[in-house]
């Protein structure tokens, strides 16, 4: 895998993914102080997506795991800089959005190649479900963590009284 990470094409993709993330962060009117975090998050998400896709060859797995990483990164960063996690998650997840699949879905639909068109539509749905599932998994984990933390602090307060 390391050899694939050190190729020029990967580096070009990584740099353009980070620049694209910056572009979307500007379109989404992200705060200037958050821009470096968005760029790092976008790069990290793409590296994870790329590595998982090579390692296990699954689009769903790549979308799910990279989404988990992006959501966890956003939640942790949000707690450090006291901002909503959405402010980081939206730009960070952009490199995994299946733009090319959507384009090919439309192209094959136009040329009446319905089999390929449905194939690409299915791939889009798989990636979308993977991304949503990843965010959902992280938020469930945080909810459980918060409930446990609250109950522990309540017990501690009772014991102190």
């Amino acid at each position: 895998m390391l050899s694939e990470l050190l190729t020029l094409s990967f580096l070009i993709k990584l740099v353009t993914a980070m620049l694209g993330t910056l572009g979307f962060a500007l379109i989404f009117r992200s705060r200037v102080k958050n821009l470096p975090i968005d760029i790092v998050g976008g790069g990290l998400t793409y590296v994870i997506y790329f590595c998982v896709e090579i390692a296990i060859g699954s689009l769903f797995g790549a979308a799910f795991i990279s989404s988990v990483v992006a959501a966890a990164f956003s939640e942790i960063t949000a707690r450090i800089v006291h901002a909503p996690a959405t402010a980081f998650f939206l730009p960070c997840i952009i490199p995994t959005v299946p733009g090319s699949y959507i384009y090919y879905f439309m192209t094959y639909l136009i040329t009446k190649n319905y089999d390929d068109s449905i194939h690409y539509l299915g791939e889009c749905a798989v990636i979308g479900i993977g991304i949503a599932g990843g965010v959902f998994a992280v938020s469930i984990f945080i909810d459980i963590f918060s409930v446990i933390k609250d109950s522990v602090s309540k017990k501690r307060d009772k014991a102190e009284k």
Binding site: I12, K13, T16, A17, L19, G20, L22, G23, F24, A25, L26, I27, R29, V32, P95, G99, S100
Partner: peptide, 23 residues
């Protein structure tokens, strides 16, 4: 006001151009 339009304009160019090369 949030980011000035010139910066957002740059964002559109950056996002579209970068992803054309990315893909």
């Amino acid at each position: 006001k949030t980011l000035p339009f010139a910066i957002v304009f740059l964002g559109y160019m950056l996002a579209s151009g970068s992803f054309a090369v990315f893909f």
